[in-house]
Design a protein around this nucleic acid. Structure first.
Lengths: 225, 225
DNA sequence: AAATGAATAAGGCTATCGTCGAACTATACT
DNA sequence: AGTATAGTTCGACGATAGCCTTATTCATTT
């Protein structure tokens, strides 16, 4: 499992058009400062800053490996919180799919890509760092509040995509009840969206988007981001 | 899915103590020559050789990305055979485990290794080229006939091992209905084997074997073959 | 306003990468 | 032996990585 996460992180960094941004993303996901990471690696903090700012366009794999190893080891030293989070996600059946984008995706681009329609009065302002596709029915029956941390993964700055939605009340109620707020909520092929759902979205200032793309097409679009 | 494989490959290369060896491994997995890869990348073949031999200790991620992208694209151009293989393995939740043996294993040895007991009147005559461990319940509810090709993988000359078997009717019915026949059927810890299952096995001249090894021990034994 | 901590930007230097081409090696075939 | 194909080794060179130091910027706290 640990190896799997390491490969994922290293893979993302290597494949990213902007490796530096991805390095930063993961460092932040592990809640580490540049200083802590630099100290652990025995280098100057400005080196980390240089990498993350993109001063180095093509870091060597030896460097990537050192950084990834350090992220994991530092997490383990601090109790392995992030690692455990990753592990628990793998087993949560209400989460159908989950992904971090290599580079934050502008919200407008995200919505346009999934042919989404904004039902809320909230405009699209920030970026989306990833998405979680959630089986709405399962989520309601099997998730408690601590499980919501799993849904948010590394960042709450993500789109929560609910499938199997009838009117969309329950997902919005649950989101309203939880301290963490996503960047966006997407209902996949809802029957009808209840006014209360829209109202709650507006109250929380969370864009509420619907899409009628097929599940397959939706996943394809998401994967392409 | 494609992205997942790309990340895995790039991650392995990046994290490897010998990136060059890993690059070569994956190139060979895609059945490409150094020349083909070099040509596609628009570089000299000696460059690929230099990387694979380890002349460059720490290739840049830009290079890794180009190579990984090329592997995938070349595979897609050639029909996407490797990619499909990876996809079918990943998505078929009914397939729990699957393997080709490096060398065909005599049927008797196979059965003895898993402490199997033959319920059918069919003797063990040929070899087993591999095995597929199948979740019986999932297979019944989610597989259609084209999916059976995935179960057989590269060769039908394999042992199909069904777990979660109650009486064994449905697996045998499905096998009887399909044109391809396995070398052997194994029921892992069945509650009771229905006479009809045995009868169908005999009709099809397929050895029907049961084993009460624990799943863990069974996998260990299989892996050791 | 001053102090503190974290991060950034930029100049600079050495080591290494990315790539070329030529020469060589190994294998298979005629 | 000669030829073809695939791969290897190595010298060389321009570009960039890996890293340092220093000065500056930014955000927060006192």
């Amino acid at each position: 499992m640990k190896m799997e996460l390491k490969e994922k992180i290293a893979g993302e960094i290597s494949l990213s058009e902007e490796p530096g941004v991805t390095i930063r993303k993961w460092r932040e996901a592990f809640a580490l400062s540049q200083q802590e990471l630099a100290e652990y690696l025995g280098i100057s903090p400005s080196v980390i800053s240089d990498y993350e700012s993109g001063r180095r366009k093509s870091p060597g794999v030896a460097t990537v490996k050192r950084i990834v190893d350090a992220l994991i080891e530092l997490d383990e030293k601090a109790g392995g919180r992030i690692l455990k989070r990753y592990q628990s996600e793998k087993q949560n059946k209400a989460i159908l799919s989950m992904k971090e984008f290599p580079v934050p995706v502008p919200t407008k681009k995200f919505v346009s890509s999934i042919k989404g329609k904004n039902l809320s009065k909230v405009s699209f302002e920030s970026d989306v760092h990833g998405y979680t596709v959630i089986d709405s029915l399962r989520a309601i029956t099997s998730l408690d509040s601590s499980d919501y941390l799993k849904i948010y993964g590394w960042s709450s700055q993500r789109a929560l995509i609910f499938t199997g939605v009838k009117y969309g009340r329950s997902p919005m109620v649950a989101i309203r009840a939880h301290p963490l707020k996503p960047a966006m909520v997407v209902f996949h092929e809802p029957e009808r969206v209840d006014d209360l759902a829209v109202k709650l979205a507006n109250l929380e200032r969370i864009p509420l988007v619907v899409t009628d793309l097929s599940m397959q097409k939706l996943i394809e679009r998401l994967e392409a981001l």
